[in-house]
Design a protein around this nucleic acid. Structure first.
Lengths: 231, 231
DNA sequence: CGGTCTATGTCGCAT
DNA sequence: ATGCGACGTAGACCG
């Protein structure tokens, strides 16, 4: 990894065109050839960048560029799309290289996949007598997170979110509309399950006859632990 | 901006929990207090981060941590959500600070506006005999990208996307529902036009009687060039 | 490899 | 502040 602090301007030409006027920035060159241009603020997103696979070529500026005060030009070209990032460097204020090695990577916990697995394992949380049909039940417009049957044997489609928002309700509505046309499944009831359900999403769901279910992730994990210990 | 290369492990507790095992990484501290943890590869997204507004506290490790080889502990806390990022540093390999100043920011030049202009100029791409009524036709719930009339004089509402996704179909559906209540416009047909239309979006659109139109941006630009050269 | 969905999405703009 | 749509979305998972 190479870290360069430099006074530079940057141009990107690819899926859009973008330009960064002359200013002092961090240029971060990773060992896979990718380049990140960061300012001293904002979020984790760089002002501009080139993702791998790509290659960097350092060029000597032509006369016109030299007259404009440019001392180096970096041209970073994407290997597949031919997108280009051109960094015109005026002054280098810092330049250092570091050996980092391969990163073991991030370990995550608490994402939607876990929730889905936990709810499938404890399907009774949907209500007494419910049974699991399957996770990721495929329909023509995409997979329904969980398909179950209630005590009376009627289909129940569950849309699962970490945070229950309006678009989740819209998604479930589309599935229900489609599934209710299938005589093998109809009638299909809807359950919108999430750790937190926004008031507007709850409103919309209930207005459409969709039941809302707030899930307690820690409690569900607790159930899981208890069950694990029993076996 | 402060750049630190260090052997460290990182823990995040917030909307989810995440852990980074001990390894050498770049720690990027921006002047607004935000922190980015980057490995030497992957994408522009850091392995872990804390976005502003947040505050960093450097702590002396307790005995247990010292025994584990930890020399510094940074606790970064988000000012609003109380999300925490904890960086446990074993060894610092580089540490430098740099004054960057405020960045003038990125200037973008997009593609979708151009697509709309091109389709409006070559409205026959909608079908023989079509005529343009206007771009950005205003309705109570927002502007329809293009309103046209077909050969029979019936209204045609066009939703334009670079990439045709399900939410684009939803958007057009809302417009059509509204516009079809207006006796001056009804009946209004829908056309979903994009450079790429996802199968599920096509499915949903056609199920709702909305016609799908795949646009070739380069070919349309070619038409434009030809026309430009004629005048 | 393409197709779809999730995301600590982020970002910007409207209300 | 909050909702909503776009993004050079990126990344994971699945056929």
């Amino acid at each position: 990894m190479r870290l360069v602090i430099a006074n530079c301007s940057v141009d990107y030409a690819g899926r859009l065109n973008a330009h960064l006027p002359l200013a002092t920035r961090l240029l971060l060159l990773k060992s896979d050839g990718s380049v990140l241009v960061h300012s001293d603020g904002g979020s984790y997103k760089p002002l501009n960048w080139m993702s791998p696979p790509c290659s960097l070529v350092e060029q000597v500026p032509d006369d016109e560029q030299t007259d404009a005060g440019i001392t180096q030009v970096w041209t970073v070209t994407h290997a597949k799309t031919a997108d280009q990032l051109i960094v015109s460097i005026h002054e280098v204020l810092h330049d250092s290289a570091h050996e980092l090695g391969i990163d073991p990577g991030l370990i995550k916990d608490g994402v939607e996949a876990h929730l889905q697995k936990l709810l499938a394992e404890h399907i009774h949380l949907l209500g007494d007598g419910h049974t699991l049909v399957r996770r990721e039940y495929m329909t023509a417009i995409g997979p329904v997170d969980i398909l179950a049957r209630d005590a009376a044997g009627h289909s129940v489609a569950v849309e699962l979110k970490r945070r229950g928002d309006i678009d989740g309700v819209e998604q479930l509505t589309r599935y229900l509309e489609l599934m209710n046309r299938d005589p093998h499944l109809a009638p299909v009831a809807g359950v919108f399950a999430a750790q937190v359900i926004k008031p507007q999403a709850r409103m919309l769901a209930e207005d459409r006859g969709i039941r809302c279910l707030v899930l307690d992730y820690d409690a569900m994990r607790g159930l899981d632990d208890t069950q694990s210990r029993l076996f």
